Amino acid sequence: MTLTLPSSADAPDQTEQAVQRIRQHVGEFRPRIGMILGSGLGGLARAIENAIVIPYAALPGFPQSLVEGHAGEVVLGRLGGVELMCMRGRQHFYEGHGTTGMTKAVRTMKRMGCDRLIVTCAAGSLRPELEPGRLVAIKDHINLLPGNPLIGPNDDQIGPRFCSMANAYDKDLRQGVQDVAQALGLPWAEGVYVAFSGPTFETAAEIRMMQVIGGDVVGMSTVPEVISARHCGLRVLAIACITNLGEGIGNEVLSHELTLQYGSMASVDLQRLIVGWFEQQAATAKR
């Protein structure tokens, strides 16, 4: 007797199931932009108008994060005049589910109608001048995670087997946000994000290594989401909120409580920046 494993085609399409369940709540509402909010940054979701909130637990394939600061819910509505699908919280590699924990959620955003994805995250600084509370637009990444969300069988209907990461962090989107930041008087910086597995914070030696290889900020998320987004054709804007100086650079004892504290401080500027950019996008769409 020969046992055969079910093919991916035989498995239930959880992305389509998630879309159908969301449609039961929002009807024909069609978000233009998707957004993922990181540690301590969920407050931005409270600014969404006419919000409809759906817990991740109700959506097949969505992550079940147990990390403090990640609410675990989807919020759909309007922000700055733009239709939005926002995820409050994410799943991380260190939670034990590999690098694919956010892939189906990202693809659901695409299937719901989004053509752009904003990714926000808390991050440590590898440069003394990028102090806690600062916002840094990510312009590229270095993946030190032991994996990639596209490993395994590829669905050509979603994206190509070999996905280019050229302009993964969209230059035009970054320029638009930079214009808004300058108009609001917010300091602007761009940098290369290094993805580290966690859950331990990096050692001083690891921080020095990341500086040598060209990193500017370090975090435990973001990169798998960006890879998944680019694979299915979403343009990406990613903004890191600096919550600490890397080990050996600053004097504070690193902790998740510190991450949440500075994430909350940075979220004030983040909200001004994102709402301003959304208003810019809405005005452009009306022309």
Rank of each mutant, 00 (worst) to 15 (best):
Q211G: 15
K171V: 15
R230F: 05
V223C: 05
L184V: 11
T243L: 06
G185V: 07
Q64D: 14
G69I: 03
A283V: 02
A195I: 10
T4Q: 11
E252D: 15
L254V: 09
M85D: 00
Q211E: 14
K104P: 03
I151H: 12
F62T: 02
V253R: 13
G250S: 07
D156H: 07
N251I: 12
E225Q: 02
N143R: 04
P6Y: 04
S255H: 09
D269V: 02
V136F: 03
S197Y: 01
Q211T: 10
G81E: 02
W188V: 13
A183C: 10
D216S: 14
M165P: 11
Q64N: 13
D179T: 14
S267Q: 13
R134P: 02
T120Y: 02
K286H: 11
M85L: 15
L186N: 01
A45C: 07
A18N: 00
R287P: 09
F278M: 15
I274H: 04
Y193Q: 06
E95H: 05
L186H: 11
V74Q: 03
M87N: 09
E28Q: 15
P60W: 04
E68F: 04
N167A: 05
L254E: 03
P160L: 03
L84M: 15
I33T: 14
G124M: 06
E131V: 15
T200P: 00
T15E: 10
L5S: 12
T99C: 13
P224E: 04
F62K: 01
L66H: 13
V82N: 06
M102V: 06
R111W: 02
L260F: 01
L173A: 10
P132E: 09
V26A: 06
L3R: 10
I158A: 05
A240W: 01
S65P: 07
H70D: 05
R208L: 10
D156C: 10
V268W: 03
A283L: 13
G113N: 00
S228L: 09
Q182K: 12
R235Q: 15
V268G: 04
Q175H: 15
P224Y: 01
M87G: 08
P12M: 12
L186E: 06
Y262E: 14
W188F: 14
R46A: 15
Y169L: 09
A47D: 12
